[in-house]
Amino acid sequence: MSILESKRIVLKVGSALIAPDNQGCRSHHLLGIAQFIVHCRQRGQQVVLVSSGSVAAGRHWFSGKPASVALKKAMAATGQTDMMALWDKLFDFPSAQILLTHADLCQRERYMSIMETIESLLEHDILPIVNENDTVASKELMVGDNDNLAAMIAAASAADSLIICTDVDGLFNKNPSIHADAVRLETVNQINADIHAMAGDAVSDTGTGGMRTKLEAAVKATAQGIDTYIINGFNQESFMQLLDGNNPGTHFVANRARSSSAVLWMKHTAKAKGEVLIAEADDSVNGEQDITLDSVVAVEGDFAVGDTILVRNVNGTKMAKAKSNYSSCLLNYVLTQGSVRQPTSTDEQPLSIISKDNVAML
């Protein structure tokens, strides 16, 4: 699928494009991006903008380097206003600010509310501009980078395509700043270990993400049927090529055989509240049958009925994320007291702690 075929696009713009050199907001790199959004809307395509940059935009108002998390939050509070004002100047149509924490995304009721809000904004031709709420987010509530946030928003908004802007022309087989013979991958059909190895650990001087987080975002998005592009946002030609139906960066092809939205949300967005450990050789965790109490060796953490939990084997290997049918308190009691009535006939089934329809294999 090319961008021209997309009905709904999520576009992620990083801090380095918003506030180069941490010297406040600048429109220089954003003009081409704004024109791209305008052209998409003129074609009848809907756009959701995920914009980093609040901390970088506000940093120049504070003397010296940030000495604390509290100071960074103050920078975000100051810079968020400047950033939204800049975007507003670039468009002749209304925009709306949506500030989120991971808690908003991993709580199912709030997640559904976000979906409804974005849908209502798009129906009224208002541009949603999403950013992590750095001012209030604690370490436990942070997504941490807007690449992964963009993938979550792409899923929540039922987008066809996700475009992630960076400072290189896509994913290369080796670091292009070091190796002159580095080759850009135009199309990636499957993100495997070899692809991950190409990402390295580079991080922008301005932002919090590197190619690694962009690959993580591509994994999340493509699993949910969303074509993902990593392009050079500093090169205005990138956006012209997209509008011509060409691929200026790396295209990660969407997985068309996708699971239900609830299972994908659980796998890629929800945070596990606890864990159940199963025997190493237990092959019942396969996503095709219920996980029963017979498989459980131990229960860790504190979770309630309906919470998302992690399923591991006793060696620590992550096997699945799932929705628990029982609380940790009850499961621990059952395991320690051995008080569950055993089946008295072949027609009775062992206690199902996780239903197969609520399992997301990892």
Rank of each mutant, 00 (worst) to 15 (best):
H251M: 08
S2N: 08
M1R: 04
N131I: 02
T213E: 15
I226A: 02
T187R: 10
G79I: 10
L362T: 10
D167R: 09
L310D: 13
G170Q: 08
A155R: 11
A217R: 00
S352F: 11
Q289W: 06
L99S: 07
K318I: 04
N189K: 06
I354G: 00
Y326H: 12
V48T: 03
G58I: 02
D283A: 13
N313C: 04
S355A: 07
A19Q: 02
A70L: 08
L330T: 12
L162K: 02
Q97H: 12
A257Y: 03
M240P: 11
G170L: 09
T117K: 14
Y333T: 06
G24I: 11
N325M: 15
Q45V: 12
R41W: 08
Q349P: 12
G338L: 10
I9H: 04
R212T: 12
A156L: 05
A304Q: 15
L30W: 08
M83K: 06
T166S: 15
A199H: 06
L331V: 14
G245R: 09
P128G: 05
N247W: 05
R8H: 11
F93G: 07
R43Y: 05
L105A: 05
A322C: 10
R256G: 03
V263Q: 01
L185V: 04
A322R: 06
N133T: 11
D205A: 12
L293E: 06
T187I: 14
L71G: 11
D290V: 02
K139W: 10
T346Y: 09
A76L: 04
G53E: 00
M142D: 13
G338Y: 09
L351E: 05
I98C: 15
L90T: 04
S54E: 07
S328R: 01
L86R: 06
V276R: 00
K139D: 15
H39W: 05
N131V: 05
W61C: 14
M152D: 07
V299T: 02
P94K: 07
H102L: 15
L17F: 11
L149Y: 02
V297Y: 06
I129M: 15
A154G: 05
D307F: 08
S95I: 03
A56E: 02
G53N: 00
D125K: 10
N358L: 14
T308K: 04
T187K: 10
S6N: 09
Y229R: 14
A137S: 11
S138E: 12
H28I: 15
V55Q: 01
I309N: 01
V38Y: 11
E119H: 13
A279Y: 09
N189S: 13
Q224R: 13
N325V: 15
R8T: 07
V297S: 12
A67L: 07
N175W: 04
L122G: 04
S238W: 01
G144F: 00
Q42V: 15
D357H: 12
E288G: 04
M198F: 13
D290Q: 03
G338H: 13
T135S: 11
T344C: 07
M266C: 14
E109V: 15
V305L: 09
N148F: 00
D307Y: 03
L105C: 10
P248A: 04
S54A: 08
G79P: 01
I291Q: 00
K323L: 15
S52W: 01
I18C: 02
A279P: 03
A70R: 10
Q23H: 09
T317I: 05
S15M: 10
